[in-house]
Amino acid sequence: MSAALIGLNVCVAAITLLGLGYFARVRMPRPPVGKYEPPDVLVVMAVVMLAPLLYLELPRTAVAVVFGLVLCAALQFTLAPLLGGLGAALLAVLAVAVTGGLALADRTLAVLVLTDVLLAVAVVGVATMWAQSGFKSVHTAWFAGLLAVYDLLATGLSSVMDRFAAQVMGLPFAPLLAVTRGDPPVALGLGDLLLIVLFPLVAAKAYGRAAALLAGALGVLASSAISVLFATGTLTGAFPLMVVLGPVIVAQHL
């Protein structure tokens, strides 16, 4: 398990650096959103809170289809500035189709790796779009703080996220950066990964390169610290990472 935990945090660090590089070099088309306000953060939070409850009521095949469509769209707009709209669409559809085909062929390892790669690209694109379209440090701090409370309730004090993880584990396009699917799996949730990648980008925009590097380092450090607790046997079940990461982000903003 220790090797898997190290691999997970190496992946998190690599995706964080990829996000910073993409953010610095690529200008994404801005969606017509004007500017973000606190109510917008509450709307995003409502979606985050309700989505797992909805997915728990759907058949696993339907969940995989929904995730696949969302991931395909995210891949397209992430790759469009690099490949053009048509090229990005073709590559996104091909990548999703290949991953789905491998899942039908029961190639579990290949599906795990491809899902992680596609998820990493999509997270970098979504984080960059938010940061470049007006999502500020204060919005990220509010988002992280609210997610910390939600994660404590949904993961630490109830079984919602445990049941959700069991529902999506092993599916193609699952919203988990997974290294293993054991019991417990070595994986990081999509929301956790998005916040780790997002905050360095808004910090770079608001405060400069040094703040961005500090934010990235502290995000990876928070994930690594929890991994150490798992490696030493102090933690054995699902842990709400946002309970640690949320206050770290809020403190940096303040």
Rank of each mutant, 00 (worst) to 15 (best):
L5T: 02
I6S: 04
V10C: 06
V12P: 00
A14D: 02
A14H: 11
L18D: 15
V26C: 00
R27P: 00
P29R: 12
G34Y: 12
Y36H: 07
V43F: 05
V44P: 03
A46W: 13
V48S: 03
L50G: 01
L53C: 11
Y55V: 15
E57Q: 15
A62E: 06
A64H: 10
V65Q: 10
L69Q: 07
A73S: 06
L82E: 00
L83K: 00
L83F: 07
A95V: 03
L104A: 14
R107T: 02
T108R: 10
L109N: 09
L109M: 05
L109E: 09
V113H: 04
L114Q: 13
V117P: 07
A120G: 04
V124F: 09
V124A: 12
G125N: 12
W130A: 11
S133N: 13
S137W: 10
L157A: 13
S158R: 07
Q167Y: 01
V179I: 15
D183G: 02
L188H: 05
L190Q: 01
L190F: 14
V202K: 06
A203P: 10
A204M: 15
A204N: 15
G216V: 08
V220M: 08
A222P: 03
L229R: 10
T234A: 13
T236D: 12
V243R: 00
V248P: 00
I249C: 02
I249R: 06
L254Y: 11
L254N: 01
